[in-house]
Amino acid sequence: MDQQQYQQIEDQITPPTPYFKNVIKAFLVGGLICTIGHAITYFYIIFFDFTETTVGNPTAATMVFIAMILTGLGLYRKLGQFAGAGSAVPVTGFSNAVVSAAIEHKTEGLVLGVGGNIFKLAGSVIVFGVASAFFVALIKLILVTMGVVEW
């Protein structure tokens, strides 16, 4: 049996990835997480002195904190298996990536273990986040200079 024949058998038997189902699940769970985030936003606006411009920080911090607790309890992993991108894309997914790496490497000590590995997964998010932010800002600057849009 050659490679091509085998590939055929394998493709036949391997169940296809249920993209549609995954998208729906990601949409619902991701939407739910964002709704919770919005509720927290309103909570901070109404009960504390935050405006829409300044409320982002405490809201993100709260979401990160909640995801941290869930990760520690091993629940975020289960949510991730169900929701996929729905739980990975919001800031809670970033928190999960950071905290899970920290827990994992605790046994190698604080400096080389936790410190050295905490951004093992989240590091690329930061790198590409900063890089893409730079380019988006550059494009906007050019457009503003040309007078196409305003700041």
Partner: peptide, 13 residues
């Protein structure tokens, strides 16, 4: 793979 508590989605395989 990933840290144990990382919430990645594993396929059916």
């Amino acid at each position: 793979r990933y840290p144990v508590d990382y919430g990645g989605q594993k396929p059916e395989t």
